[in-house]
Nucleic acid binder design. Structure first.
Length: 556
RNA sequence: GUCCCAGUAGCUCAGCUGGAUAGAGCAACAGCCUUCUAAGCUGUGGGUCGCAGGUUCGAAUCCUGCCUGGGACGCCA
């Protein structure tokens, strides 16, 4: 198990015991003991604010309380080297260094599994993301959602959750009919006929491509047949083409789904009417103005929502409710939807639906991916699917590189808008932090190769107690944090914490590299210990990069 | 008008459940390669944490109001 976490737990227990022994509070009154890792090393390895928290209960000055706690603390049991009371009443703990000794062996043994925990206890989680309508290319904004969703899933899996990735295919409804009409227009144009695009048509280059392809494959065959048949064929043709392209692009972006869920399948076995029935049973449905309404205001929505329009067709919401029912019925403890910022207004009605279906609202979570503003030549570019001028994911991967794009997108918090500068991304300069991290990994690989040629045993015995330099201690502590960082990232659904972590670790490695020489023929013992340290850092860097979906090159 | 997100260094952004002197990268400035990769390291300068109240031992963080930017408010999807 994770040594650092264990040390922390023991310390917490000892503090709690000391508080009770010192009669500062009863077991019932005692608040949860919180240990933080101080930013400033002068404040020790852990710091506790328990004395301040107890000020009211114990009716004493915080510093006096802190002193009482320290007096009753079993320092040996908690592996404490030194305790200090500081500031308004913080207790700073300096731990014995031996708590770091087991970190390297732990990592070397765990190897690619280092960082994994059972924090999630096998809880079943489903993440639905991307889910772009199959009517055009994936663009920049989708890339952000794809990177976020994918890394979130990786993090979940590493933290011991049972996670499934799903893509919801909107293969029914209006937009698909529009696709057929757009394909038709492009097809006829490819045959040389003057044909206007439909009003709500899709203007992307991919549709032009489909038109040309069709014209080449079948000539004017479809120009002569009746329109209904033609459109039906074009719909399926376009759908298949677009989906294929999306899947291909995503796979190139290193995103693979476990499940591609078709909206149409909901129609096939009456899932929509069953969902409607369920709402009906709860009396959340009523008729008005010739339409069928869902009383979402019963669950804090602004207004009620139409489910069945006057013309008898469903709104987008209706099959979506059935879809969410389907997901929950599959037994997930939590379903997470990753949506673009423009859909955030949709959350209250979906949450209402979840509750009206009889599920607890906290099983349902939405992660909103804020907009990406694209800059080129210092100018902001508009992203519009309609006009087809958006920068495609494919283009990004070709020009910027997959590693850089993925890394960049998961560096930022999902609910912050971000600027993407095409010129900067293209430049491949050292402005790009992904190289910084990859370089750290490559550096270690080079050292390890050198070690072999210089006759050091790369898999030999080593004594970690020799690692006493400040930079070595910093590295060890950081290495020990990794499993907790991953577990935190999963629990808080903040994959960017892993990116921050890997960057920090790379910084410590570079700093260490410049301060200390690893391969030293005059000090074989220390060299062996440092080689082991380097191996542990390399493994951790690689594992973290794997979570982000970025490659860990052996040389650069 | 209602709702959501954001507002932190010149720029792009971190800041965990409230904690000690608010951080990083880029940009600026000054150093470091006969020694394991300089895509690196070390140091310096740079801040009314949008504004005003409140909560308390303590607020960038929580609450209220306001300001600014973006987005959403369809029997579209």
């Amino acid at each position: 198990m994770n040594v650092l976490v264990q040390t922390e737990e023991t310390l917490k227990q000892e503090i709690a015991a000391a508080v009770i022994q010192a009669k500062l509070a009863t077991a019932e009154e005692l608040p949860a003991v919180i240990l933080e890792k101080p930013k400033d090393k002068a404040h020790g390895d852990f710091a506790s604010n328990i004395a301040m928290q107890l000020a009211r209960i114990a009716k004493k000055a915080p510093r006096q309380i802190a002193q009482d706690i320290v007096d009753h603390l079993d320092q040996t049991k908690a592996s404490i080297e030194k305790v200090e009371i500081a500031g308004p009443g913080f207790i700073n703990f300096f731990m014995k260094n031996d708590f770091l000794e087991s970190i390297i062996p732990t990592i070397l043994e765990a190897e690619s599994t280092y960082g994994q925990t059972n924090a999630g206890k096998g809880e079943k989680v489903q993440v639905e993301f991307v889910s772009v309508n199959p009517t055009g290319d994936l663009h920049l904004g989708h890339a952000r959602g794809a990177a976020f969703g994918d890394v979130l899933c990786n993090v979940y899996a590493a933290a011991g959750y049972d996670v499934e990735r799903e893509y919801y295919i909107n293969d029914a409804g209006n937009q698909i009919d529009n696709l057929a009409l757009s394909v038709e227009a492009r097809y006829l144009q490819a045959l040389g006929q003057e044909t206007p695009m439909p009003e709500d048509g899709y203007h992307g280059a991919d549709i032009i491509e489909i038109g040309k392809k069709l014209a080449e494959e079948v000539g004017d065959k479809w120009a002569k047949t009746n329109r209904e048949e033609r459109l039906a064929y074009f719909k399926e043709y376009g759908l298949k083409y677009e989906l294929g392209k999306i899947e291909e692009d995503l796979e190139a972006f290193r995103v693979k789904f476990d499940n591609w869920f078709s909206e149409r399948s909901l129609y096939n076995d009456d899932q929509i009417s069953k969902a409607l029935e369920k709402l009906q049973q709860g009396d959340y449905i009523y008729e008005k103005d010739g339409a069928t309404w869902f009383r979402t205001t019963a669950f804090d929505d602004d207004k009620d929502r139409v489910l069945i329009k006057q013309d008898g067709s469903y709104t987008y919401l209706t099959p979506d409710i059935a879809y969410h029912k389907n997901k929950l019925d599959r037994g997930f403890n939590k379903i997470i939807n990753v949506w673009g910022a423009d859909h955030h207004g949709y959350i209250p009605r979906m949450r209402a639906a979840i509750q009206a279906l009889g599920y607890s609202a906290d099983k349902f979570a939405v992660k909103i991916i804020q907009m990406v503003n694209l800059f080129e030549n210092g100018e902001k570019l508009r992203m519009s699917k309609r006009t087809g001028k958006a920068v495609a994911l494919r283009e990004l991967m070709d020009e910027v590189g997959i590693d850089a794009v993925r890394y960049y997108f998961v560096t930022r918090s999902n609910d912050s808008q971000l600027d993407f500068d095409m010129d900067l991304a293209r430049s491949q300069s050292n402005d790009n932090p992904v190289f910084y991290v990859q370089y750290a990994h490559a550096r270690i690989c080079t050292m390890l190769k050198q070690a072999e040629t210089k006759g050091f045993a790369v898999d030999g015995e080593f004594d970690t107690t020799l690692l006493n330099a400040e930079k070595e201690m910093d590295l060890l502590k950081k290495l020990g944090e990794f499993p907790q960082t991953v577990a935190d990232a999963a629990e808080k659904q903040t994959p960017h914490k892993v990116t921050q972590y890997v960057y920090d670790l790379a910084t410590l490695l570079h700093s260490f590299y410049n301060a200390e020489k690893v391969l030293d023929a005059d000090n074989k013992e220390l060299t062996q210990a440092r080689i082991a340290l380097m191996k542990a850092v390399r493994i951790t860097l690689q594992n973290a990069l794997d979570l982000i979906g970025v490659s860990a090159p052996e040389k650069m």
